[in-house]
C-alpha cells in the first residue's frame, strides 16, 4: 500500500485537504494537520490523490 507523507514545514493549515478527504485528513483545534491513517487503501487512492493535489503549497506526497 502507498503511504501519505506530510511535509509539516510546508503545511500552512489551509485545510483544503481536509475538505477534500475528511476521512483521512483532520486539522485539530490548533490548526495542526493529522492523518487518521498513513497507509492509503486502494479504495481511498483517488480521494487521497485529489487531496494531495488541492494542497496549494504542495505539502503532501503519496509514496508508492
Amino acid at each position: 500500500m502507498s503511504r501519505i507523507l506530510v511535509d509539516f514545514d510546508r503545511c500552512e493549515g489551509h485545510g483544503l485537504c481536509e475538505q477534500t478527504a475528511p476521512e483521512v485528513f483532520r486539522l485539530d483545534d490548533e490548526g495542526e494537520l493529522h492523518l487518521t491513517r498513513e497507509e492509503v487503501a486502494p479504495e481511498d487512492e483517488r480521494a487521497v490523490a485529489a487531496a494531495v493535489r488541492v494542497c496549494p503549497v504542495a505539502a503532501l506526497k503519496v509514496r508508492p
Binding site: 485545510g15 483545534d29 490548526g31
Partner: peptide
Amino acid sequence: AVNHRLPVIK
C-alpha cells in the same frame, strides 16, 4: 488572521 494560528475552519 494576521500571524495568528487558527484552524481555517474556525
